[in-house]
Design a protein around this nucleic acid. Structure first.
Lengths: 240, 240
DNA sequence: CGGCAATTTGATATCCATCAATCGGTGTGG
DNA sequence: CCACACCGATTGATGGATATCAAATTGCCG
């Protein structure tokens, strides 16, 4: 289930995900809602293929994309009985669905599974704290640079490319719209467009269609982002 | 230990915190470092009194305060063997110190403790996602409004004031500097100052010294923040 | 090929950052 | 006890990055 054999990237496999082994699948069209804010939290999911977005929307219409979710990701974390966020499909997506009590039972009976679950949660916290740093401190171009490395990281994971220098990693697919990216990065879509253009002008990337870029200068991208590698625990480059 | 009897605010007590019952105490002076980014994660802490800040700092000097920590809060969450953030005292602070393996042992032997720990983690995730929404979508004044409600919330918890209308809650102490607030809200200290002034001009608050405000119009503050209550799971007001 | 939505581009406005004093409290030494 | 110095906070003047408003363009899908 989920991602097969990640050589040195993700050491303790998320064993609790085996609850999805025999789970029914569901196919989602782009824009389709999986979880609705305020809804009852009685199911959890695992992404088989495709991309989801997690959103929080204020009544004045402002929307923050809290996270994008990729194949292998667990969906449905919540402490309470109701969700406080929405989850929607970005691309056509296939998910495995599992009643929440099955997860609860699994966690209640298997200490190792709990351990793995806890570990996953800690990784989630660290990822979100990265986002906090981006939104609080980085400029528009820096945020976009981080975002591109983030997509590259997920492409590497989902396609199981062991080598960071694999030439296929120069090409990055961008499944989501400019607006989705903007709402994730705390910007407006026009600003995202302009930032893309700036990166292209600076010969850091090459655009070919609005959903694909080629990275021309990876080290420049990393320099801009201030990040070495998304897989490493210390993500801020050039540490004191 | 930690916070005594919170009537209806915090239902499942964090029972795993009993590992701190007999733990040695340590007193910190303002600015003193508890955890240093990159250091070995071999201890965990619980705050007895005082306030801490959790920071991530880039080498170019940009600093993001990821969170402030208050009495009863657990300190030291990390999936990896080294910390990727720093923790420093804001005010004189007393903490209980516990070797990490004690926590590990407790979690390994007590499913209920694990449950409580997991629950705490989920609350942390929700809190951080609130911060993400603030940084990504809210204006300076809105962020400050949210921040003041956040301080009010913690004052209510730590002083164990059951009633949200308790008159004592009109007075809010602000233990941290303008720069700390700025780095938490993704602003500059001058902007924080100006935002305070604007709230005062609009008769929402009354300043008396730079570390104390009186809330004159709580509903206006909530309106600005778009938040009803920090204790509730659904925090965005006037939901769809 | 045509039409519509997404994206890009352009012109302008706004909010926040930056730079620069000034103010105000606190502690110290004369 | 008061003068001074220091540091954080406030206030002021200006600049810059991003938002907003408004086309023009691209590209996707029928």
């Amino acid at each position: 289930m989920s991602t097969p054999e990640l050589p040195t990237l993700d050491l303790p496999q998320d064993i609790f995900l085996d609850i999805f082994d025999a789970a029914p699948l569901r196919d989602l069209a782009p824009g389709e809602v999986v979880i609705s804010a305020g809804g009852k939290a009685d199911q959890v999911f695992n992404i088989v293929s495709g991309v989801l977005r997690v959103c929080r929307t204020g009544t004045d219409g402002r929307r923050q994309v809290l996270s994008f979710l990729f194949p292998g990701n667990f969906v449905g974390l919540t402490a309470t009985e109701t969700y406080f966020f929405s989850v929607e499909a970005v691309t056509p997506t296939r998910i495995a669905c599992c009643p929440r009590h099955v997860l609860d039972a699994r966690l209640a009976s298997d200490p190792l599974a709990v351990r793995a679950f806890l570990n996953m949660m800690l990784r989630v916290v660290e990822d979100v704290l990265d986002v906090v740093y981006s939104l609080g401190q980085r400029t528009a171009r820096e945020r976009l640079a981080v975002f591109l490395l983030y997509l590259r990281h997920w492409r590497r994971l989902t396609q199981n490319l062991a080598n960071d220098r694999d030439p296929r990693l120069a090409d990055i697919d961008i499944p989501m719209s400019r607006e989705d990216i903007a709402d994730f990065l705390g910007l407006k879509k026009e600003t995202v467009s302009r930032s893309f253009k700036e990166l292209e002008t600076d010969q850091v990337i090459l655009r070919s269609g609005s959903h694909h870029v080629r990275v021309l200068d990876l080290s420049a991208l990393r320099e801009l982002a201030g990040i070495r590698d998304f897989a490493s625990p210390r993500r801020i480059a050039r540490s004191p």
